[in-house]
């Protein structure tokens, strides 16, 4: 199997690594970089728990090869908080108790954060559509949707 030297930025830090062709970005993050906030579940693109940002856009990292991420910028759940301060979405997940078992939380937050940057004033329908690719096995969607809508409000307040 072919091996490849890659360099990629993860949460602002540059990494130079050698990866085997079949290593997914998900496994690179978890196994080689120790960033276990990104969860590994279905590994077939159905559940969305492994969502990270590739150049700012959410992707399911179980369906991206590490070698494909060469030269790109990755953001994981560990890269959102700054100086220990949670983002509004993270904060609102805490406040609304939008966490049951917590396994989908990183995926939900990565999708919600990216979505609110593109659509700062969403309807509830739009939030549901945006989160459609991330599954909560506990089915605790109500609190998650409320948290995202509330975070949107908070972010709009902060920007005015």
């Amino acid at each position: 199997m072919s091996k490849h030297r890659i360099s990629l930025k993860v949460n602002g830090r540059l990494h130079e690594l050698e990866v085997e062709a079949n290593k997914t970005l998900l496994r690179l993050l978890r196994e080689d970089l120790g960033l276990t906030g990104t969860k590994c579940a279905c590994e077939r693109g159905d559940c969305g728990l492994c969502t990270v940002w590739l150049d700012g856009k959410p992707v399911k990292s179980c369906l991206v090869l590490a070698v494909e991420a060469d030269g790109h910028e990755i953001t994981t759940i560990e890269g959102l908080a700054r100086d220990g301060k949670l983002t509004p979405v993270q904060q609102k997940f805490v406040e609304h108790g939008a966490v049951q078992c917590g396994f989908c939380t990183p995926g939900m937050i990565m999708v919600a954060e990216a979505f609110l940057r593109e659509n700062p004033n969403p309807t509830e329908e739009e939030v549901k559509e945006a989160l459609g690719g991330v599954l909560c096995r506990c089915t605790g969607y109500r609190q998650i949707i409320d948290a995202v809508l509330d975070a949107a409000k908070e972010m709009r307040k902060a920007s005015t």
Partner: peptide, 9 residues
């Protein structure tokens, strides 16, 4: 088609 995250790939 699929979902918004998958549509990025």
């Amino acid at each position: 088609l699929a979902d918004p995250v998958l549509r990025n790939r």
